[in-house]
Computed example of a mutant assay.
Amino acid sequence: MKKKGFAVAILLVFLLAAAGFVGAKSLYETKPVPKGERHSISEIIPAKAKWEKVVKGDGGFMEGINFDRKGDIWMVSPMSGELLKVKGNKVEQVRKYPGPVGAKFHKDGRLFITDITGVIHAYDPKTGKSETVVSTYKGEPLNGLNDLVFDKDGGLYFTEPMGSSATNPVGRVFYLPANSKEPVLFADKIAYPNGVAISADGSRVYISEFGKNRVLAAPAKNAPPSPETPFVFGQYEGGIGPDGLAVDKAGNLYVAHFQAGEVVVQDKDGFKYGTIRLPEGTGTFTTNLAFHEGYLYVTESSKNEVWRIKVNKEGLVPYGLQ
């Protein structure tokens, strides 16, 4: 009986391994090696495309750019503690918060805002009222928060970088299920998790590991079972690290490379198209990105300017505009 049980156990292990191999093979299916260069940045931006300055702010540190259903631009400034809105050719203060860093619209019209105090606020533009959505994890206060993104189900990923660095990688990423006030831990031991985005097919979460100048990819919370594990999606040179992220409908990832004055573009397999460098004389604090009506919008926070450039790809429609 013991020998029979042992044989059954061995067979079970073999079958599980075979199933894992089949799954891995389907996921990591080999592709023909291209004859020439894989990509050119001209696939992303038209040959004659030029940067256009959209607006300039008076102060603060503008980032967290979003568009509402009317096409109006919203931003935040952690330095001056402002929620901002662009009206005409001016940036105007809408409301004060302790330290707003990131912002994303919910389908219901509220703007969810991460704060360096460890809180997520929900601001209603219709009523002007604001409420606290999240402030703790397992009864303990959260550290300073940075960026956030909704998935297709209304769940919310958000980053908690404060206190972490390249030499102290204790940053965390959380997931807040839809209609819940209790976040769950999604990833930890990260060197300053900054920007966060979701792949076009919803299967991956991209995390800017600012302290190590790279972007990580991890299976999404509600993704179908897969042998894929978290891995380094992109490693960058120069600057300090990746900040805000954006994804187009083809699955390409756009990375605001802070202190480099550029946007790095990669395909869904991690190969680079190249970089889109901001115009000469502009600052290098590229912080956040957003797509709108055929343009890629970029916040440059050292000079408090918003720039845009024509792109060939259509951006993913964010949850708040679906």
Rank of each mutant, 00 (worst) to 15 (best):
158 F>C: 05
318 P>V: 11
267 D>N: 08
87 K>Q: 15
259 Q>S: 12
94 V>P: 02
77 S>M: 03
251 G>A: 06
266 Q>G: 01
291 F>A: 11
56 K>G: 11
63 E>G: 10
172 R>P: 00
219 P>L: 08
145 L>K: 08
76 V>P: 03
270 G>F: 12
26 S>H: 12
132 T>L: 06
85 K>T: 05
166 A>H: 08
238 G>F: 12
146 N>H: 09
150 F>E: 09
9 A>F: 14
266 Q>C: 08
64 G>D: 04
287 T>Y: 04
2 K>T: 11
237 E>G: 11
94 V>W: 08
239 G>A: 09
237 E>S: 14
234 G>D: 15
172 R>S: 14
47 A>L: 12
247 V>T: 12
215 V>E: 02
1 M>D: 11
201 D>I: 05
294 G>T: 05
95 R>P: 00
273 Y>P: 01
245 L>E: 14
308 R>H: 06
244 G>N: 07
318 P>W: 08
140 E>K: 11
186 F>H: 02
159 T>W: 05
138 K>W: 01
157 Y>Q: 12
212 K>Y: 10
52 E>G: 03
247 V>C: 07
173 V>T: 05
147 D>E: 09
84 L>S: 07
281 G>V: 10
158 F>P: 01
236 Y>Q: 02
148 L>N: 01
256 A>M: 00
119 V>G: 00
235 Q>V: 09
273 Y>A: 05
186 F>M: 08
82 E>L: 12
40 S>C: 00
189 K>E: 13
41 I>P: 09
19 A>T: 09
158 F>L: 05
299 T>H: 03
294 G>F: 04
70 K>F: 02
192 Y>E: 13
279 P>L: 13
260 A>C: 02
116 I>M: 14
162 M>F: 15
146 N>F: 02
178 A>V: 15
144 G>R: 07
170 V>K: 12
276 I>L: 15
275 T>C: 07
233 F>A: 14
297 Y>K: 10
112 F>L: 14
216 L>K: 10
262 E>P: 00
162 M>Y: 09
86 V>F: 05
270 G>N: 09
314 E>N: 13
259 Q>Y: 13
231 F>T: 10
168 N>I: 04
212 K>I: 09
122 A>F: 03
72 D>G: 06
141 P>C: 09
128 G>C: 10
63 E>N: 12
151 D>R: 01
107 K>L: 13
178 A>Y: 10
